[in-house]
């Protein structure tokens, strides 16, 4: 029942991560999520740069997983976030959760992503044909994280 947290420039393999998550005999469920760089509504994204706060990032992510373990019975949890310059369709983030049962695995994965979006010190800068712009935080992300506090 380990926790693996990685902040890295390199890409990751969902298949390899799944193999690591699927090795516990006590866990009958593995949920994985991968977030990708997607095209803007206007369709002019060249690339994206992910900046973070080294030190704080790892601490916040570890704390999110610890909070998830306080709410659900979980096995292995793997959380990967890439930083640096990423191209369209590149993988950005991975969360994988093993648990005895599917409900806990689904919910914990969602919980971790919802809080990562509002708590982990990452910032996206989009590079478009018109110039570079820092992405604005979304109210919908804040609302998703806040909703867990009412549970």
């Amino acid at each position: 029942m380990g926790t693996e947290i990685r902040v890295q420039q390199d890409d990751f393999s969902v298949a390899d991560e799944y193999q690591q998550l699927a090795q516990e005999s006590s866990c009958g469920a593995v949920v994985t999520f991968a977030g990708l760089v997607r095209e803007l509504a206007e369709g002019q994204l060249d690339a994206m740069t992910l900046e973070h706060y080294p030190g704080m990032t790892e601490q916040v992510l570890a704390d999110l997983v610890a909070q998830a373990r306080g709410r659900w019975q979980l096995g292995q949890v793997t959380l990967i976030h890439r930083v640096g310059r990423l191209a369209l369709n590149d993988q950005i983030v991975f969360v994988g959760v093993a648990a005895p049962h599917r409900k806990a695995a689904f919910e914990a994965a969602m919980f971790i992503m919802d809080f990562l979006k509002t708590q982990a010190p990452f910032w996206k800068q989009e590079h478009t044909t018109d110039g570079s712009y820092w992405v604005a935080a979304k109210d919908t992300d804040q609302a998703a994280a806040t909703a867990w506090q009412d549970d």
Partner: peptide
Amino acid sequence: NFTFVDLQAAVNPGDELAFFPPVTGG
């Protein structure tokens, strides 16, 4: 020191403070 704080939080010599915009990762 890597933990969110508000403006009233005490700061001691040797601490590390950071100011930044709302986060947009994931």
